[in-house]
Design a protein around this nucleic acid. Structure first.
Lengths: 344, 344
DNA sequence: ACCAATAATGGTAGCGCTACCATATAACGA
DNA sequence: TCGTTATATGGTAGCGCTACCATTATTGGT
């Protein structure tokens, strides 16, 4: 007799369950996947047999046979930002409710790593992809199209989404904030961004520049940091901005982490916010409204984006929705204590 | 001829690649999985054929045949806390380097959801599990043991880990902080925890109580909130603590989010920290050292825990490490401006 | 009472890959 | 020179499940 394959542990299979329940393997499969297609009595017997044998339904074999893996791939820049982790929570909630699991890959804001992540996850044959951000690489885009897998991009707009999109315009949002600051009476608004940023970062900076133009203000004053995810960078921003000439009266940061870091560093320097310098962020993080002074920010429905993305994706997967659906989500300018109405 | 199965798209398989490269499918498999076992010339030809055909290695079929899925399951309370998302980053980094992918499930601090999550992920036949926290459910524990899958628990100690453990003692850490506060001269130290908390929460509270006893201080004064992940809860803590009689002179919070929320709420009430009330947190979050005043906290190597856990797990999976390895990681008491030396 | 339509089960043939063994070829020593 | 061992490739038989069809039991209409 043939030797047992290496690594193969004696495993309870569907046939074992079938034998115990005295039905065919097919009936076990049905009882598990479409309970309504099996007479209640047999269903019971199968469930009982599953319990007795400690059977675990092998979703790997199931995926191979059915071409449905029940996994959704999530691609994001980094998990260590409440920006995106809140969206992942939204995805996770929907996935759990609808019996799917999440496979995760981080890109560290790099297009190359995005390519690698998508390529690696495609081999898992996920039922769909959710991308935090839009697909940047042309090669990746065509891979996804060729694989004919549903894709939901999020957190940005784009002219040509791969498939579906949960969109808000980072550019418009940043412009709206810049104009809101101008409308409060701020005359010199500086911007803190990242060098070599991703598309969202570039678009926010563009929005800032457009806002200045729209309000016929001064030439842009931009400072750059390397790392956009740490408060320490925000402290660097504070240093750089206070050294600018002419001295800005407001600072608009790429995100709330930088803004909070800057705000706190300014406090530490003894500069009062908003009297010495108005500060605004982007993202609507939890801590923004709790800081003293509370932080003016662009609030973005982070959780809702993930939730909606997952719903759209699951509907696509189950054939309930059409491709190329574009949903808009709304950002909201939240003016708080870190900026004030100068005109009053 | 038999109809094509529903859902089956014309897909490039290993046989197609083999035909193009003019080798056998087995050689393609080897060229992909153990390149050194194939002559360089053939390897080249296979790689060329892969490129030409746009072949994507199907890891589902591979997993079924080889009993190695290349996935690691990560179970955590919630992704929306930098506590755990930093650890996930550490895991993700190692996974990427070693060619594995991460499947994620959240438990929302609930034992029932932990059971459900493990059960669901077991069906994916992951090569191993990383649990943020220790396994709470006896049923889940025995499921994992029966499945003979490597497990690394983290973020806590336990008498009997399922398998391996990356440990630090929440109890000892909380006790150490309580004693450190006592040593600064604080006389009445209150604690903010969660009602119906998980094991870590309970242990931290225990540590607090033990610390009071060790320093022969007053009876414990504990306030509880429902939600431990929001700053708003921290603000509630501030309200509750200022209403306590006798009035505490220090507040030790279950985590840094609560502590930061409390600290900022106290500022907003016009109470000065640390003069009116010392505040300490737990977790060593990024923002703790940037707050004004900076937050005294128990620093925990969040990223390193994830990184180490993933390394241990991968070694276990690849047979390089033994089971039941227990690594200790160190916490660190960081005394900062939110507490001060009263004795001086 | 008989046939058509419906519902519930079972049998079979893969899904796409890799473990295992068999085979062929090269390298090597005596 | 001839076996003898190492090295490289190929063939085959599954991994555990489900799509598809065949079969049987049940229902309903006339």
């Amino acid at each position: 007799m043939r030797q047992r394959r290496r690594g193969s542990v004696q495993r309870v299979t569907m046939s074992d369950v079938a034998r115990v329940a005295e039905v065919s393997p097919m009936t076990v499969s049905r009882a598990l996947n479409q309970p309504d297609a099996v007479r209640p009595e047999l269903r019971e017997r199968v469930q009982e047999a599953v319990r007795k044998t400690g059977y675990i339904h092998d979703r790997i074999a199931s995926a191979l046979a059915s071409h449905r893996s029940g996994m959704i791939a999530v691609i994001l820049p980094t998990i260590a930002s409440s920006m995106f982790s809140d969206s992942v929570r939204g995805i996770s909630e929907v996935a759990r409710a609808r019996g799917a699991q999440i496979v995760l890959a981080e890109t560290n804001y790099s297009v190359m790593e995005e390519e690698a992540a998508v390529a690696a996850l495609l081999g898992r044959r996920p039922d769909g992809f959710i991308v935090i951000g839009t697909i940047q690489s042309e090669r990746t885009r065509s891979q996804l199209v060729r694989a004919a897998v549903p894709v939901v991009e999020t957190w940005d707009t784009t002219e040509e989404p791969v498939d579906s999109l949960i969109a808000f315009s980072n550019r418009d949002a940043a412009q709206a904030m810049t104009e809101a600051l101008a409308d409060l009476g701020y005359q010199r608004i500086a911007f803190a961004g990242v060098a070599n940023g991703d598309r969202r970062a570039r678009l926010r900076e563009e929005g800032y520049r457009a806002g200045l133009t729209a309000r016929a203000l001064h030439a842009p004053q931009v400072v750059y940091v390397e790392d956009l995810t740490s408060m320490r960078s925000g402290a660097l921003v504070a240093d750089m901005v206070t050294a600018l000439a002419p001295q800005p009266d407001a600072l608009f940061c790429l995100n709330d982490v930088l803004a909070a870091g800057a705000l706190l560093a300014l406090q530490r320097k003894g500069l009062r916010v908003p009297d010495a310098l108005g500060v605004a962020g982007f993202g609507g993080f939890d801590f923004a409204e709790h800081l003293v002074p509370s932080l003016t920010t662009v609030d973005v429905p982070r959780y809702a984006i993930g939730h909606e993305a997952a719903c759209v994706l699951m509907d696509r997967i189950e054939g309930l929705a059409d491709a190329h659906k574009i949903s808009r989500t709304e950002f909201q300018i939240c003016l708080r204590e870190s900026t004030r109405d100068i005109i009053l």
